[in-house]
């Protein structure tokens, strides 16, 4: 995978428009995600952070505009290309979205079963390795998702999204619903994994701590567009009422942003 040269811009969104009926969420939105970076996407409630993520991964069809992942236009792909392209990225949904009828290890093996014909022993080994990578105890392997805590479920889901060795990872509010210690540990895990595996991470969040500690660049959504996409320092200096309030409010000060 590392042998072939890949474009420096992993995700490129141009002139994106998404709308539900007459309600326009994004209009003329441009966004670039560079290889190897952790991009944090923030924005007030209802600015369409999750909608943007869903449009990029193809769960919502945009009304207009192009979305390219690894230089391939999603709209021009055949069904088979689209299916194969899904191996190039992993998605972590907000509450993990683990299959409730399967154990954690079986959940992690689902993508392997779907795309390869591996020996059971290798699949088991891979599942347990990914489980360890995601910082879970091995006892969790035979448990069902309903028996896990929120933080453990997220880690298990992260292991599942990493099992096909994607180079791009989408995280939807990874720290939502975690206690501060669990959230900080998860932040650390994301940062560490992205470094050691060379992942590009697209991270939708509300959590100022995550933005400050993990993200290389921050994209701010507002007015149906990306207001600014830059490192934290530049974003903080950006002159926009919402951005100023968000990054200079009491919570931002507590997170050490200012």
């Amino acid at each position: 995978m590392a042998a072939e040269k890949k474009p420096e811009i992993v995700v490129s969104v141009r002139d994106l428009k998404t709308a539900f009926g007459t309600h326009v969420v994004h209009d003329g939105l441009d966004l670039d995600v560079r290889r190897g970076e952790i991009l944090g996407v923030v924005g007030g409630s209802g600015t369409g952070k999750s909608v943007l993520l869903k449009a990029i991964i193809g769960l919502i069809k945009p009304a207009a505009g192009t979305i390219e992942i690894n230089g391939k236009n999603r709209a021009e792909m055949t069904a088979e290309e689209d299916r194969l392209s899904r191996r190039e990225w992993g998605v972590l949904f907000q509450d993990g979205a683990l299959f409730s009828s399967l154990t954690v290890a079986q959940n992690i093996q689902v993508p392997l079963r779907e795309h390869f014909h591996m020996s059971p022993s290798l699949m088991k080994d891979l599942a347990l390795s990914k489980l360890t990578m995601a910082g879970l105890e091995l006892e969790a392997a035979a448990k069902f998702p309903s028996d896990l805590s929120g933080g453990m479920r997220k880690r298990a889901a992260l292991a599942r999204s990493l099992v096909l060795d994607p180079d791009l990872l989408f995280l939807d509010e990874p720290t939502a619903g975690l206690d501060p210690i669990g959230a900080a540990a998860f932040d650390g895990l994301v940062k560490e994994l992205s470094k050691s595996l060379g992942l590009t991470v697209f991270l939708v969040t509300h959590d100022l701590d995550t933005l400050v500690r993990v993200c290389d660049r921050i994209a701010v959504l507002g007015d149906q567009k990306i207001l600014i996409n830059a490192p934290l320092k530049e974003v903080m200096a950006f002159d926009h009422p919402w951005v100023r309030e968000y990054f200079h409010g009491p919570r931002a000060r507590a997170a050490g942003a200012t």
Partner: peptide
């Protein structure tokens, strides 16, 4: 060098564990 970190992440073999109920 590029592979070193990867091998370190996957450094030790996980002990046998149950994966199914």
């Amino acid at each position: 060098g590029a592979h070193k970190t990867l091998l370190e992440v996957i450094s030790c073999c996980p002990p046998p564990a149950q994966t199914e109920p």
